[in-house]
Design a binder for these strands. Structure first.
Length: 423
RNA sequence: GUGGUCGUAGCUCAGCUGGUAGAGCACUCGGUUGUGGUCCGAGAUGUCGCGGGUUCGAGCCCCGUCGAUCACCCCA
């Protein structure tokens, strides 16, 4: 082993797991595209201020988890810890909010948070997210949730639950928070906990300790402070989720870590994952655009954790569906040049082809053919070139049929399209 | 950032109270002239995470460090 290792806490994927990772990511993207979301490809670093203002100075993410540094021009730069702020910046910068609303966008890529790593929590991790910007309509909230749910179902996940809540509008929030703070000031807490509560009193709802849970169960609930409009929206969300047959539970003490959330908030939690069980979450944000200097527009979106979803699939024992691996493996016997040329010709016609290199002995080359997972295999040697035909062998049945070299490409294409339809 | 556990061949792991490293799988080659997946045989492979210390001697003990992991915290 080399003395170099990947930096602490990064997630990286190599074969065979990389294809599984890619499958997860593509499935999520596919769900987004099915609902009309379009790609934005954004930088992985931004001006630090975008995040301090967008995500919120009081959040842990901003206070202690950002990778921030000065670039060579002395600018303060931060590796993106989340996706929404960057999307908003791009929307404003390119005036996407001047056209028809909502603007529906998705992104996919790496994010960075300087946390202490553990299973399912990485310093570089992958997220796919969507944002629907410009319309405050509970139907869009539900659409966003439905995209996530579709992705999870397409991925074959079963052991997850959807939790939803409403955080109300700004007025509800400030009324509620002052009451909650008052309640908390009346209970006896250790210094550390008191500090956390001062920063964000909602955090105490998340505390794992029995005694804290007991006192917090009697604390005022945000849900009771909702304005009639917020309450009506939240009812509508629940009604629509029911219509769409998306199961959910209302968690009236859900805590979201990012300051910008208002109104509908949700979280998908997987049961097989231990402490880092959130596989995705999101919600509506009313103040974010104006906070960043744009017009007063509301938005809603989610971020799904690709790494954790892969872990969740593995926890459920799911394996990759019938893979689109190699179609053909060529075993050359002393005619490596011709074999490579043939492979190139077949590849040019869309046949996924690999071949043995390095003048392997027949037996070893056949083993390679087996391990490659290719559907078919041919041996190519002087005899075949002389006769102009090869034995096309189907690996899993062992059956061979004689095919002329000139007809090989067409024959393979025919067979591939056959089994393609059965996938 | 805090606390616990762990770190031995590519992988999963064994290694008794300290005496100088092993198994299974994987890999390479072979089992008579050109067909894999089973079987049989042979072979290669480790600075025992890294650095110090104790000791005649350390994979086994001590300290540090790096990494993983579990929980707190936080969140995707």
């Amino acid at each position: 082993m080399s003395k170099y290792q990947a930096p602490k806490g990064v997630s990286e994927y190599v074969p065979d797991r990389s294809s599984h990772f890619d499958y997860v990511r593509r499935t999520i993207i596919n769900a987004a595209e099915l609902s009309g979301y379009e790609l934005v490809e954004l930088p992985v670093f931004e001006d630090t201020e975008l995040f301090t203002r967008g995500v919120g100075e009081s959040t842990d993410v901003v206070r202690k988890e950002m990778y921030t540094f000065l670039d060579r021009g002395g600018r303060s730069i931060t590796l993106r810890p989340e996706g929404t702020a960057g999307v908003m910046r791009a929307v404003l910068e390119h005036n996407l909010d001047r056209g028809q609303l909502p603007v529906k966008l998705y992104y996919s890529g790496a994010f960075f948070r300087a946390e202490r790593p553990q299973a399912g929590r990485f310093r570089q991790f992958y997220q796919v997210g969507i944002e629907a910007i410009g319309l405050a309509d509970p139907r869009i909230d539900v659409e966003v949730i439905a995209v996530a749910d579709r992705a999870f179902r397409d991925l074959g996940l079963k052991e997850y639950v959807l939790e939803i809540t409403s955080l109300g509008d700004e007025r509800t929030r400030s009324d509620y928070l002052s009451d909650l703070r008052e309640y908390i000031s009346g209970i006896n807490l250790d210094e550390d906990t008191r500090e956390r509560a001062a920063l964000n009193p909602l955090r105490l709802f998340d505390d794992k300790r029995e005694e804290i849970r007991a006192v917090m169960s009697k604390a005022p609930i945000l849900m009771d402070y909702l304005t009639p409009e917020s309450a009506a929206d939240f009812d509508k969300v629940q009604e629509l989720l029911t219509v769409l047959k998306i199961d959910f539970t209302v968690n009236d003490r859900m805590v979201r870590g990012l300051d910008y959330y208002t109104g509908t908030a949700f979280e998908f939690v997987h049961k097989g994952l231990g402490a880092q069980s959130g596989i995705g979450g999101g919600g509506r944000y009313d103040g974010l655009m104006s906070q960043l200097g744009g017009q007063e527009l509301s938005g809603v979106g989610f971020g799904l954790g690709v790494d954790r979803i892969l872990l969740a699939r593995e926890a459920e024992g799911l394996v990759l569906p019938a893979n689109a691996g190699l179609d053909l493996y060529i075993v050359p016997l002393g005619v490596g040049d011709t074999a490579l040329a043939l492979a190139e010709e077949l590849r040019g016609r869309g046949v996924k082809t690999d071949l043995a290199f390095g003048d392997k002995a027949l037996k070893g080359a056949m083993k390679s053919a087996d391990k490659s997972g290719a559907r078919y295999c041919i041996v190519l040697g002087a005899d075949e070139l002389a006769s102009g035909s090869v034995q096309l062998k189907e690996m899993h049945t062992g059956e061979s049929t004689s095919v002329t070299l000139s007809a090989l490409a067409n024959e393979l294409i025919r067979r591939i399209s056959d089994y393609g339809e059965h996938l």
